[in-house]
Design a protein around this nucleic acid. Structure first.
Lengths: 192, 192
DNA sequence: CGTATTATTGACCACTTTCAAAGTGAGTGG
DNA sequence: CCACTCACTTTGAAAGTGGTCAATAATACG
């Protein structure tokens, strides 16, 4: 990886894989997210696009030079890295302590929020968005099997927490209900 | 949290807790680790000492001032944060995809490595160290119950991967064997 | 259309959890 | 000094969640 850059549209995944093939997604790059590690040469993870993807890239060397010259940029980058760290740690709670159903609900919550902020509309009323991940990618993100993902999505549909059009388009009639299902009773004041 | 600082001796844990009491450790602060988030006021997690703890602290305000004036420090901090991010992501693989036995072995691996680098000896031959965590703290780190932790430690002992003196002092006769048990067949060149 | 990929569903099984009981050990006070 | 207590740990049996294997269905694509 000789580049750094940020996602313009589409979705990419950072994944780690064990020798026997078990894989875990360790980061999800949605539009506006930054990728790459200034000051590092090692590519610690695999980065794979899960949809068509447009990124805005810079060669790493000039970018690092700019960083050294502009303290403000290093500061900004530190803030973004701290945000990523927060996201990773929140995800550790999901992976370690939530049930399969809660995991699915948590993922939908994240995607819904990101989509809402991108579309510049709030979280009130019904939300509708396209899942940018296959069931398998969701499973890799959640530490589940794709069968379990499928079953839990069916269960959430049966319980009317979500509605599906086709396999990818999801409607959420009541976001608060989804948050409850995620075990995140607290809505974090994001209902704005 | 009006301080930042680094651990001199002892161990502290960063934990996140759900309303119903389920808790997940999201970071382990061992000697030489840094704690605190320059530029942030929110304390996103609980920080609890799990042993007697000595830290070297700075008030956050003057520290941030120093950071703004000394670009080198911001750079260093970014590197440390990237390291933490790597550690968090490695842990996501553990939480999401490893079995209980592999999880225990992975944790022992980390503690053994940290202890070795602190004691300034390599990973060859037999290693011996004190577990700085209760079974419950280990369970919270690994996303398991304390009973499962206890059972798996007993199993590793039965299989002679580890030896115990009392409940806290662990001897590892063959580190490579432990790595295999952790599912990390690759030793990362740390055998030095 | 036919083939390949992705998704759903079912039956069965394994691993981890839950609930419960008993064991260990350090520290305290009689 | 010993018995008592409390926290921590170990162990067992039963139950449950998610995994595995397998068949079927839906969708995309040539």
């Amino acid at each position: 990886m000789d580049f750094v850059g940020s996602v313009v549209s589409g979705v990419a995944a950072l994944t780690q894989t064990m020798e026997d093939g078990r894989t875990q997604m360790v980061g999800l790059l949605l539009p506006s997210d930054f990728a790459g590690r200034p000051g590092r040469d090692s590519a610690a993870y695999d980065v794979v696009a899960t949809t068509d993807l447009v990124m805005c890239c810079f060669r790493k060397k000039p970018f690092e030079k700019m960083m050294a010259e502009t303290p403000h940029i290093a500061q900004r980058l530190l803030q973004m890295t701290l945000d990523e760290l927060d996201a990773a740690r929140e995800w550790m709670l999901v992976l370690g302590r939530k049930t399969a159903r809660e995991k699915i609900a948590s993922l939908l919550t994240i995607i819904a929020r990101r989509d809402a902020s991108l579309q510049l509309h709030g979280m009130a009323g019904t939300l509708k968005f396209t899942l940018p991940l296959t069931r398998e990618a969701m499973a890799d993100y959640l530490g589940l099997t794709l069968e379990t993902v499928s079953r839990q999505i069916s269960a959430l549909k049966r319980d009317k927490v979500i509605f599906l059009e086709g396999k990818r388009i999801i409607t959420i009639p009541n976001f608060t209900r989804l948050l409850e299902e995620a075990g995140d009773d607290n809505d974090g004041g994001m209902l704005a």
